[in-house]
Amino acid sequence: MKPPRFRYCSPESLEEALAVLGEFGDEAKPLAGGQSLIPMLNMRLARPSVLVDLNRIPALAGIERTDRFLRIGAMTRHRAVERSESVARAQPLLAEAIGYVGHLPIRTRGTVGGSIAHADPAAELPGVLLALDGTVELQSRRGHRTVPARDFFVDLLTTSADPDELVIAVRFPVLPPRSGTAWLEVARRHGDYALVGVGAVVTLAEDRRTIRDARLCFIGVGNTPVRATGAEAALRGQPAAADTWRSAAEAVRNELDPASDIHASAQYRRSVAGVLTERALALAVQRAQEGTAG
């Protein structure tokens, strides 16, 4: 389990990194935290000719809060997100989910941009980004563009970023008032990728008893993180009550199409997605009502 030969560079500015990526295209692979890429290199499942180490570009790390969103630089470590008070205040769903990412030493090294770019369908951060209707900032020598999460995650470990494009930041929009969130997941062991996970975002009407808007995003049930748009639509205008959660769970079960693997069957995932839907909605609404957001 030793990595194959490659050439390595460690640019110290974004411009330098983009230049190298532009030069080598598909042959180059950006190295962020390396917590998914290096195991694949050690197993010789990935074979880039050139590794472009982003760890020496300080400008790529940082958490910034604006009126409209929380912007997290691609090279911000999971641990920094976990420790961030502005994340805890502004994005409770992210704060709650981040603790489910791997283990302490993985979160120390792993980065937000790396997780998003890797696009593992059972990973938390892509799910959180999609649940919050977040966006991905991409940059290349050709320019800068912003891609909504729903257009970014294309397929299994595949995104809409071009080979010369780098994820430089992600943006998590700020929640409207009377919103609550909940992140729940079921994994085989603590820290494992989820068998099924759900992020629920609920915004209540002014009566605080009716659902104005709800978003449900699932991980571990498809080739990308998946929004249950049908269930979301059906939730709008419904009373915040157990019956509503049960109907939403049923809608989710009808809507999702998970696959089987050695850890769980498709039927299990579908059923548990419904269970987590009920639990997460109830919790998110409770938080919205208490004004604790998440």
């Binding site: 079921v186 085989r188 850890h263 769980a264 069957s265 039927q267 299990y268 059923s271 548990v272």
Partner: peptide
């Protein structure tokens, strides 16, 4: 055992 098996035992109709 595993979660899936326990779920199957308790949800024979769905499994």
């Amino acid at each position: 055992l595993d979660p899936d098996q326990i779920w199957r035992l308790t949800h024979p109709a769905e499994a």
